[in-house]
């Protein structure tokens, strides 16, 4: 695969979720085991719309597949959303501390300021 195609694959995975039309119910739901609640999720510093990167899984992984696909080698982390269902993810590790206070410009590693995350902070 050429350079352009490789990066297209990454770009599509970063954009895919966000351009999909979703209902209010889909947007509101935060599963009990969600990527945003995991230690390995780092919120994207550019688009604070809830997308982020997994620190363990790489592009090519698919935790929604049955069975889930885990790719841990590669140069680019897997883009995912704060409320992506991580129940099937073998690398899910619940975060001890989540900062839901959006006034403090906190580390995207543990800051989750989406409205849907209210009440999930400690």
């Amino acid at each position: 695969m050429g350079r352009r195609d490789e990066w297209k694959q990454v770009q599509n995975s970063m954009y895919g979720e966000i351009t999909k039309a979703r209902s209010v119910e889909e947007r509101e739901k935060v599963p009990d085991a969600a990527c945003g609640l995991c230690k390995n999720f780092a919120e994207n510093a550019y688009a604070s719309d809830g997308r982020g990167l997994c620190k363990i899984l790489k592009v090519g992984s698919n935790i929604a597949a049955d069975p889930p696909v885990f790719v841990t080698a590669g140069e680019v982390g897997l883009p995912t959303m704060f409320n992506t269902d991580a129940a099937a993810c073998a690398h899910y590790a619940k975060m001890d501390f989540i900062d839901t206070d959006g006034t403090e410009v906190a580390d995207p590693g543990y800051r989750r300021v989406q409205r849907q995350m209210e009440g999930k902070g400690k």
């Binding site: 966000i18 351009t19 947007r27 809830g50 989406q114 209210e118």
Partner: peptide
Amino acid sequence: ASMVNEELYNEPG
């Protein structure tokens, strides 16, 4: 930008 629109949806308050 769609991503800003989505951010607005998720924005508290």
